[in-house]
Design a protein around this nucleic acid. Sequence first.
DNA 1: CAGTGAGCGAGCTTCCGCTTGACTT
Length: 797
Amino acid sequence: MAKNLLIVESPAKAKTIEGYLGKDFTVKSSYGHIRDLVKSEDAIDIANNFNQKYEVPADKKQVVSELKKLAKEAEMVWLASDEDREGEAISWHLFETLGLKDASTKRIVFHEITKPAILKAIDTPRKIDYNLVNAQQARRVLDRLVGFELSPVLWKKVKPSLSAGRVQSVAVRLIVDREREINKFKSEAAFKIVAVFGKGKEAFKAELPERFAKQEDAEQFLNDCIGANFDIRSLETKPAKRSPAAPFTTSTLQQEASRKLGYSVARTMQVAQRLYESGNITYMRTDSVNLSETALDAAQKEIVSAYGDKYHQLRKYKTKNASAQEAHEAIRPTYFSNHTIDGESAEKRLYELIWKRAIASQMSEAQFEKTTAKISISTRKEELTANGEVMKFDGFLKVYLESNDEEDDTQQDGENAMLPPLTRGQRLALQEMSATERFSRPPARYTEASLVKKLEELGIGRPSTYAPTISTIQNRGYVVKEEREGKIRNFRVLTLKGDAIVKENKTENTGAERGKLFPTDIGAVVNDFLVQYFKDIVDFNFTACVEKQFDEIAQGLKEWTAMLHDFYNPFHKEVQSTIETADKATGERELGIHPENGKKVSVRIGRYGPFVQVGDSATEENKEEKPLYASLRTGQSIETISLEEALELFKLPKAVGEYEGKVMKVAIGRFGPYISHNGAFVSLPKEIDPLDVTEEQAIELINAKRKKDAEKLIKTFDEDPEVRVLNGRWGPYIEFGKLNVKIPKDKDPLTLTYEECKALADATPKDSKKGRFGKAAQTKAVTKKAPAKKKAAAKKK
DNA sequence: CAGTGAGCGAGCTTCCGCTTGACTT
C-alpha cells in the first residue's frame, strides 16, 4: 500500500502524475468540486454571518467514499488541486469532508504537469490558504444570493422558470444591446472609386481614399478622368512585419475553431476534452498564455529540425487579462514532434490548429515590404493610392495565420496585392475606373465565440463556464442561434471604360446571417426588467468590481462576510421593493389604431409567447367586447413588428370553404402554411399564397394528400384503429397513436400482428428526443423533486 | 423518417465553478 495519497482535480492529470512519482504515491482525482451548497433556501444563514450548508451531491458520493478510504490508509495526504481560488477551496472541502488531520496533510501546487515541476512542488509544500478559501466562499455565496433571489422575482413579474445571474444576465444584455444598435443603425451610402491600370500581369488596382456621398459627384469625378493623365507622384517602400499570436487559451481556441472550423463552443470543448484525455494536448480550460520551460525547449527543437534555425524565436507571452488566474499552461500539444495525430477528423483538425498555433508562437516574425504609390490625376486635385505587399520572409506564416472577426470587403479589391515594378513620374495607362455604391455596415451580431471573447474582456465567467453559459441563455429562451435570410438591396455602379461611362443598377443580398445570436422577445423583456430594477447587478463592471474585492479577501485585506454584508443589505432591499412595487413586465408596445374599426392595436408577451391584441382588454364594465388575439410568427419581434405586419396576422386562420360537410381552414403553423380539415393537415406548397387559397384548390390538395397517404398504408387492425402500419421514406413503421416505431428488418410488415406492434411500441422509449446530457438532467430532476415537494408541503402548513 | 398546428391549470422552476460520466440520435 502506498504511503502517500496525492489528490488532483482531473483523472487524466492523475494518471500522468502517477507515472512521474513511482510506487510510493497513489494519485487520485476529486473530479472537480466534491461539495456544493445545498439546493434549498436554507443553504446560507444570512443572519449568522452567511454560514453555509454544504452537501456532497449524489454523483460525487462514490468518489468521496473512495478518497476517504485511501486517505485513512495513507501516511500523508497531498492536496494538489489547482492554484487558484476554486482549487484552494477544493482542497479545503477535501480536508473537511475526508476528515484529514493537519499533521498528515500537505498542500502543494504546480502550474504545469512536468516531472520537475511536480517534484519541486513536493519539496515545497504549504498549508491551505484560508484567505483564498474565503474569497471563493464569498464568490460562491454571492452568486447563489444573486441567482436565487433574482430568479424568483422574474417568476413573479415576468414568467415562471426564468433565471437571472451575475454572468448569464450580462451575456443576454450584450446581445440585446447589440440587436438594438443594429435596429437603430442607419446605413449610409457612398461611392467608392477603384481604378485599374496596366494590362495582363502588370495590371494593378488603385483606390481613391475619399468617397463620394452623391452620385453626381462620383459621376463628375469619372467624367473628369476621361482623357486625364495619371502619373506616379510618389513611391514609398517600407519594411513591415507581423508577429505570431500567443498560444491558445480556452477563449481564443473557441474563437479560432469557430472561425476556421465552424465549431460551436460546445463542440470545440468536447473535441478538446477528448484530445486531453488521449494525452495529446495539455489542459483545455485555461486562461493562461504561458508555456512551460520544457515546452519551450521542445518547441524550439521541433522548429529548428523542421524549418531551420532562423525560423525559431523564443517568445514568452503575458496575459493582458486582469482577471486571469493562470492555474494552468496555455493549450498546447503534449509532444510538439507530433504534427498530426490519429483519431476522428474533428480531433485531427482541432489538434492541428492547436499544434500550429503553439508552434507559430515560438517562431520568428514574418517580414514584408510594403509599397505605397500615390497617383496624381491631371484634372483633379485628389490622388489615387495603390498598395502592394511583398513577403520577404515568411517566418511563422509558414505554419499559421490567425483569422479575425471582421470579414472585410476591401480584400477582394486587391489591397495588399503585388504591384508591378513602378518608377516615380511614370505615366500610367488607365484600363477602367469604377464608382461603386457601398454602404456603411451596422455593428456585427455576436457569434457564440465572439460573445465569449467579449465576456472574457469584461472579466465575466471562467474558461470552464463559457460553453455552459452560452447553452444556458439559449436553453432559457433568451437568445436563439439562427440563420436569417438577407434582404435584396439595389446599388449603383458607374464604370468608365475608354471614353464612356456606363451606369448600371445591381443587386446584392445584405444582412443574411448564419449562426448568429439573436435576442428573443422574452430575452429583451427580462433584460429591460433587470436593467430597470437591478441596474448594478447587470452592469458590465459589476463582476470586475466584485472580483477586486475577492482579490482583497484573498490577500487578507478584507473580511469576506463584511464584503457580503455590504453587498447583500442594499441588494435584498431592492429585491423586496421590486416585488412590492414593480408591475408585471410584458414588453407591451402600442402599434397604433386599427384602420377599419378604430381599436387599439398592441403587442406584448404572454404565457404562450408574443402576440398582438386588437381592442382593449375586457373590464368589469365592458365584458361583451372581447379583444382579438394573434400569435407572432418566428422571426417577428414585438420590438420591431409594424402595425401592417401585425394586422396581417389576423387574416389567418381563414376558412376557405367546406368539403364533405366540414370546414377547411388555412393557417400558418410552425412548419409553414397548412390546410386543416376534419382533423387532418395538409401543407401548402410554397407557390400558393395562403391568403389566396380557393375552395377548389384546397379540395384538390386534401385529395392529393389522401391519395399519397393511401399509398403509404400497409395495414390496419380491428383491435385499434389508432394503430397503423405505414410505409415511410426510410422504410416501414408503425404509427401507434402519437408514437412512431420503426419496424426491425427481420420482421415482415405485412404479417405483423397487433400484439407484435404493441410489443414494439412498449419497447421504445417514449421520450428519446433529448440530447446528449438530456437523460442525466432528467434523473437529476427526479431526485431533486422529492425534497422540493417536502418543502412546498411544509410551506403550506 | 412523419408528425406537428392546443392550452383555463398544480406545482415547479433558479445561481456559478470545478470536473467527467452514460447515452442514442
